[in-house]
Design a protein around this nucleic acid. Sequence first.
DNA 1: TCTGGGGTCCTAGGACCC
DNA 2: TCTGGGGTCCTAGGACCC
Length: 423
Amino acid sequence: MLPVFALVDCNNFYVSCERVFNSKLLGKPVIVLSNNDGCAIARSDEAKALGIKMGVPVFQILNIIKAHKVHVYSSNYALYGDMSQRVIQALTQFSPNIEIYSIDESFLDLSGFSSHNRTEYGRKIKYTVEKWTGIPVSIGIAETKTLAKIANRIAKKSKKPNGVLDLTASPYQDKALELIDVEDVWGIGRSYSRFLKENGIKNALQLRDANDWFIKKRMGIVGTRLLHELRGISRYPLERCPSPKRGITVSRSFKQTIGALAELLEAVAGYVSIGTKKLRKEHSVAGALIVFLMTNRFKKERYYYNMTTIRLPVPTSDTSELIQYAHRGLTEIYKKGYLYKKAGVMFTDLAPETQVQTNFLDSIDRIHSNRLMKALDNINEKMGSSTLKYAAVGLSGKKKWQTVFNHRSRSYTTNWNQLLEVS
DNA sequence: TCTGGGGTCCTAGGACCC
DNA sequence: TCTGGGGTCCTAGGACCC
């Protein structure tokens, strides 16, 4: 049986989450900002209409915000993560085979539905998700993921499909592809879109009908797969179980630059704490650790970036052990006299925690350390995420490296202290 | 003055081995 | 001066995604 994919995509997801808990925002321009309230990373349709682009720094649009009374929110990942779970919960009613692609997108397997049922079924999915969660979604249906993406885009942008478009075996498929600029095709980014346009390939239809050999030569195997997908031959199957992570990164920009090593050490200890917690949640251990440090990348003068990789004698997810290694690495790459803007840690060479090769020179009591980590995670899970923390992260007080969220909404769904009051 | 964070996959080239 | 031919593994960097 030929596969049929439905891509369910939440509209302006972060903004929609804010609107669920504040109906005054409906119909108004709203944006949600990145960490430190730096850039606009989600925009309502009204905000998009004002010309606010994805990822634009806030300081560049202050006049628009003021003139049009744009509502501005800091990002609230606890809320968005929780809302995402609710959407997924609703979607699982509609297909046993679902791939959670990102926080706001899922693919559903709709193979086996006859054509007039599919659109109807899509409508039912859309209606149910909106009713259960308050989040509006668009649905694109087609023979491949790439075509479903295109159907979704048209479903979202055009009036007629009203949020659900089935392009499977559709006589309108050519028309649809012609409507899509080549840079809006899934898998075509800045670099490829420039190259393709220079070669007269301006929309998805022209890309689909491009010369195989030419595309293979210039875009490799990825380009070939993309052509096939546009032609209705599925090259990216539905992935029901997420494959284990290959790496975990925790990094942050600082609102203010930092010069002192002591403060950077605290910041990095904090990132290791976050990262190791994720590591343990995945039941993984890290075989290597990368620490990096950089000044402001937008400033050419006095720019400095450095990183170092530390191979661990025994793969581990122990927080205190990894803080020590990270501190060693950071001290190595730190250079006095620079003002740093960002630092981070990456855990790589991940392996399942059950497969740790012990080293007879190992001086650490692994069983004890595992028990300690479990207790730490349990307490922080129950009592709040920083009930117990390592002294290396620093004691209370305002820190230069702490991320700023000056426009945050309350955590309506995840924090007992911040439940919505109905008046 | 002010510019996010976390991922994946692919490829080319070097090191090394037989 | 002549100077093979593969193979594997690893890494860095590019390109893309949300």
